[in-house]
Design a binder for these strands. Structure first.
Length: 580
DNA sequence: GCCGTTTTCGGCCCGACTGTTTTCAGTCG
């Protein structure tokens, strides 16, 4: 989307301006970039409808940046920006990604050594050329090399799903110490972002040294980066870094608020504090020298005259304004899901029998579970044909009656049901790979794209729309097809898809699989605004993956989704009626 | 370059650390 292209340009713009020592413009451009990145409307549509004035209506975009957006939409480039690209023919984004390198260093490296990209930087550092530059030294050079090797190995970020279990383990360990009064994850982990750079953990205690000593000696620590009186930084064997900070109880709330971020959220919060004649930092909220809040996050937000919001909302994408008006959404909770409708059994590529899946679902206190085996097109996953699907349905009927009989004697109002579903394949022309007659026998039908991702935007949009108009199709799985850090989403006109989803009552999936998390948060927000229903599913191929649901819920929360927007927060009766 | 229940001009978030320096610029979160 053109929004993202412009966002990236403005981010780079900000860096160029900072290289030239501009004082306040970089901040303005960075803000414009951040605003565009999360803007749900297509900037091109806004411009077409309302022209320059429409652009200037967007907060953070004024006359000058609006004109640059116009220029980009009309000509595909921005002259002023092109001039900078000529002046500094450098891959700023790549270089700035190196820990410890900022705009000023990029400039020096270019001017003195003609370093343009990561490759040049690595070569120069290995040759020992960097240490001779003014304001650089041996240690800086060594740090740069370390940073580059980390970047190359891990691309710098980790999937939330890959690290959260370990984080919770570490926190559990800290909780067991009697010196620990409170402990929580902070930073992007607490905000449940899709990917995590490094992990922040915060502890309240009056005995910091004991906590620090324990923290650096836990099994799994492979390197201690820093160990001070109240903070420590380590690398885990899994490859990511963890920062721990210990603060006194009276500052725990302000520190938690501060270290949870996001940076953008905090900037605005501190500004609001300043406007009220107050000062906010990690030690508390102050009026002059007097501390007026700090023990809890609630009292800080309250003193700043707003509702406290869930960490997943703290991105400065409208939550602060909403909180000031007491108009925060009541986002879906982690206990609100009543069942998972996208599980693969051993009838296709999955690892567990339907009975095992049902038992695991009951253990999670679900009211229903849906088996959505692949259909025949997906040979590699043993997709089921019409006949096999019929056999599988019989098995589900058998299990359902067995469950009812075995439980009716013990709990009178017990209800649990296994639903008959499938994840059918959407063919390139939008048709479904299995007969309508077979689909009609099911409780519900998921349809998804599993092949031919690289077709034009127009064709892909039509393909999905054709599938949604099939009267048997209830849900579209992983609607944009992206795999985080592996594959971009396919080209679609999302607004058009929302329109047809609304007309046909088709549900869009929020796939909880850690590398999918598809829909993304901005799309969830759009779907909610369009009144399109969503469902949070796991796509589990093993019962150990049923807990992925938490990541999908996080994603929904970051998209401001409420309970009513998510259909599997509802009862079985409601669901079956809706599908019919 | 943006913005306005103190302002259409004069402000713009805050503190700590690091590595290079003899007092601080640059970077980070």
């Amino acid at each position: 989307m053109v929004n993202q292209e412009l966002a990236q340009i403005f981010y780079n713009f900000a860096i160029f301006l900072e290289m030239d020592g501009e004082a306040f413009k970089p901040f303005a451009y960075e803000r414009a970039g951040a605003v565009l990145e999360v803007l749900t409307e297509d900037i091109n549509d806004i411009y077409k409808k309302e022209g320059l004035k429409g652009l200037e209506r967007i907060p953070g975009i004024g006359v000058s940046i609006a004109e640059k957006i116009e220029e980009y939409l009309k000509t595909g480039e921005i002259k002023y920006y092109e001039q900078y690209k000529k002046k500094y023919p450098v891959d700023v984004k790549e270089l700035i990604a190196v820990e410890g390198i900022g705009p000023k260093m990029v400039k020096a490296l270019w001017k003195e050594l003609k370093i343009k990209n990561l490759k040049d930087l690595e070569r120069a550092a290995k040759a020992g050329k960097i240490r001779n530059l003014p304001h650089f030294g041996e240690k800086t050079e060594k740090n740069i090399l370390q940073s580059i090797s980390f970047l190359k190995r891990e691309k710098g970020r980790f999937l939330l799903g890959g690290i959260l279990p370990t984080v919770q383990e570490i926190i559990g360990g800290l909780k067991s110490l009697k010196e620990v009064k409170s402990v929580s994850e902070a930073g992007s982990v607490r905000r449940r972002k899709e990917t995590i750079g490094d992990v922040d953990i915060l502890v309240a205690s009056s005995k910091p040294s004991k906590i620090i000593d324990y923290f650096v000696s836990v099994p799994g620590v492979v390197k201690i980066w820093a160990k001070g009186p109240t903070k420590a930084s380590i690398r885990r064997k899994e490859g990511f870094d963890v920062d721990l900070r210990v603060v006194p109880e009276k500052s725990y709330g302000s520190a938690l608020q501060y270290f949870t971020g996001s940076k953008e959220h905090n900037i605005v919060l501190r500004q609001i504090a300043v406007n009220k004649g107050l000062k906010l930092n990690e030690y508390g909220l102050f009026k002059g020298k007097k501390m007026i809040a700090g023990k809890t996050e609630e009292e800080i937000y309250k003193k700043l005259k707003m509702e406290i919001m869930e960490p997943e909302l703290r991105e400065n994408t409208g939550e602060i304004e909403a909180a000031q008006k007491n108009a925060l959404p009541k986002i879906i909770g982690y206990q609100d899901i009543k069942g998972d409708l996208h599980c693969h059994s051993d009838w296709n590529g999955g690892e567990n029998s339907i009975e095992e899946i049902a038992k695991a679902a009951m253990a999670m206190s679900y009211e229903y579970i849906g088996i959505a085996d692949h259909t025949k097109f997906l040979r590699i996953e043993n997709g089921l044909d019409e006949k096999q699907l019929k056999e599988r349905n019989k098995e589900i009927d058998r299990l359902n009656s067995k469950i009812q009989i075995s439980n009716s004697k013990q709990i009178s109002n017990f209800k649990f049901q296994i639903l008959k579903g499938c994840e059918a394949n959407i063919m390139p022309d939008g048709s479904i790979d299995i007969e309508d007659e077979a689909l009609e026998k099911l409780d519900y039908v998921i349809a998804g794209i599993h092949s031919q991702f690289k077709i034009t935007k127009d064709k892909m949009t039509k393909r999905i729309i054709t599938a949604m108009k099939n009267r048997n199709v209830d849900i579209i799985s992983h609607p944009t097809g992206r795999l985080i850090q592996k594959r971009d989403e396919y080209q679609i006109d999302f607004d058009e898809i929302l329109k047809v989803a609304k007309e046909t009552g088709t549900i869009l999936e929020i796939n909880s699989y850690p590398e999918r998390l598809d829909l993304r948060d901005v799309y969830i927000k759009k779907a909610k605004e369009a009144g399109v229903k969503m469902i949070i599913n796991t796509d589990a191929h093993h019962i150990n993956q049923l807990h992925f649901i938490g990541y999908g819920i996080s994603q929904a929360r970051r998209g401001w989704a409420e309970k009513k927007d998510i259909i599997n927060t509802q009862s079985l009766e409601y669901l079956l009626e809706y599908f019919k």
